[in-house]
Design a protein around this nucleic acid. Structure first.
Lengths: 197, 197
DNA sequence: ACTATTTCTTGTCATTTGGCAAGTACCTTC
DNA sequence: GAAGGTACTTGCCAAATGACAAGAAATAGT
């Protein structure tokens, strides 16, 4: 019931291997549907992360800096796996929070279930590796894209490459994501609006 | 010969599984010894990354920013796997360089060889996943530790947590790693020396 | 609909960091 | 050991960003 997007996502992410429909359903059966209302949490600091396919909605990850202020570290658009690597794969308490920015729907699985699947459906291991690589690469690209750029350039890049963020997240969250204060972001937007005419 | 450190490293990174000595040697046999002299490259931008165990020496990864200036993105102490995720796992051309900061010795393997090993020695897959997770976590921790800190705080943390970097890398490389100019780093060190007395 | 709360903007001023240029010290290499 | 290069430091000034505080606008709760 409604796991079509999950199944399609898995299928399109197991390259070089043929997976039977039966295997796909064995996999999908392990995932449990979950709805997360706006501002509610998929992961709270202090808990251990699960592994979720975000079918619809928009999420953000954030942590507290040394001053106790929230810093948004990531935005998750739909059709992505959502998890905190460190906590999920090492079964450790998370320091990050993952929160629904809009109402979300997803399918999640625990570490134990995932490993059982890896054991029972060997082809599925490839999916696991791919997700890990994909997330790592995405994370790295984001940090590299930030290097030696002014706040305005970072803003500009986010606007062109991830404009959907602006449709969902608050400017405060976006500001901390860009590594600046909401005050500065506001000023940058003013300047940017002037130029863009 | 001399692959003992490699073998010991692999063995200590395949948790929950028993690997026979024979299997360990099948694995180690695929790795090829390599020596990289100071300032020479393990990976050059434009090439595809291999996967190397750094047995001795010290390396750094760097890329060019939009102004064409070198930005050090990572330092590798010995007893670590060295590779560029994106390039290695997706067989794509690297934009990063990985260079020996001191004379290095290591053992490397190609993507094809690694996959053949994963196929022939299934227990070894666990090692592959662990390395991916470890590197991802290390990378993330570094970026998170940098959040909302002044240049001086970042310097201070590097001093306390990774002081070995200062034994090998030049201040110019360290400055770009900290996201500042060598000029600023020099000033910070002066202030820091005063306080530390 | 009214109030309270949160979000966003704006002003003033201080601080951090960078750009540039010059100077010193060290290290190669022939 | 002289010459040239690289690494590091320092001074002066400019630019970017933050801190704080107040106001305007939007949103949520009752």
């Amino acid at each position: 019931m409604g796991k079509e997007t999950l199944i399609a996502f898995i299928q399109s992410n197991i390259p070089h291997f043929f997976v039977t429909n039966e295997a796909l359903h064995v996999i999908a059966d392990q995932f449990q549907e979950v709805e997360i209302a706006r501002n509610d949490f998929f992961l709270k600091a202090g808990k251990v992360s699960n592994y979720m396919f975000l079918a619809s909605g928009f999420m953000r990850a954030y942590t507290l800096d040394t001053n106790g202020d929230e810093v948004t570290t990531y935005f998750y658009p739909p059709n992505r796996m959502v998890f905190e690597v460190s906590s999920f794969f090492q079964h450790t308490i998370s320091t990050e929070n993952i929160q629904a920015v809009t109402d979300c729907k997803g399918y999640f699985i625990t570490f134990e279930q995932l490993n059982r699947l890896f054991h029972n459906v060997p082809e599925f291991r490839e999916f696991g590796r791919l997700m890990l690589v994909k997330e790592f690469v995405a994370y790295k690209q984001r940090t590299l894209a930030m290097i030696n750029k002014s706040a305005e350039e970072r803003y500009s890049e986010l606007m062109t490459n991830n404009s959907e963020v602006f449709l969902h997240a608050s400017l405060k969250h976006i500001a901390s994501f860009l590594g600046i204060t909401d005050t500065s972001l506001s000023r940058i937007r003013r300047e940017y609006a002037k130029k863009g005419v």
